[in-house]
Amino acid sequence: MTDRLKALSDEGVAIWLDDVSRQRLRSGNLAELVETKHVVGVTSNPTIFAKALSDPDVYTGQLRDLGIRGVDVEEATRMITTYDIRWACDVLRPVYDRTGGVDGRVSIEVDPRLAHETEKTVAEAGLLWWLVDRPNLFIKIPATKEGLPAITEALAQGISVNVTLIFGIQRYREVMDAFMTGLERAKERGHDLSTIASVASFFVSRVDTEVDKRLDKLGTERARALRGKAAVANARLAYEAYEQTFASDRWKALQAAGARPQRPLWASTSVKDPSLPDTLYVTELVTSGVVNTMPEATIQAVADHGEVRGDTVRGRYDEARQVWAELAELGIDYDDVVSVLEAEGVEKFVASWKELLATVRKGLEEEARR
Rank of each mutant, 00 (worst) to 15 (best):
H38D: 04
T60C: 03
E74I: 14
F49E: 01
T99G: 04
Q62I: 04
R93P: 02
A115C: 12
S9E: 12
A88C: 08
G41L: 07
L25T: 05
G28Q: 05
A52P: 03
V39I: 15
C89I: 09
S54P: 03
H38V: 11
S21W: 00
R98D: 13
P94C: 10
A7K: 14
L30C: 10
R24G: 14
T36N: 10
L17G: 01
W16Y: 11
D90G: 02
T47N: 06
R93L: 13
T77L: 14
L66F: 04
T77H: 03
L53K: 01
S44F: 03
A50Q: 14
L114Q: 10
L33R: 05
D55H: 13
T81H: 01
S9T: 15
E124A: 15
D111Y: 00
V39A: 00
K37R: 15
T99M: 11
V91E: 04
L33Q: 01
D10Y: 08
V95H: 06
R93N: 10
L53G: 04
T118H: 08
Y96N: 10
G70H: 06
W87L: 13
Q62K: 13
V91C: 06
L8E: 01
I85D: 02
R69Q: 14
R26L: 13
L25Q: 00
D103P: 04
Y96I: 07
P56K: 12
A123R: 13
A7L: 15
E75K: 15
G61S: 13
A31V: 03
S27K: 11
E124V: 12
V39M: 06
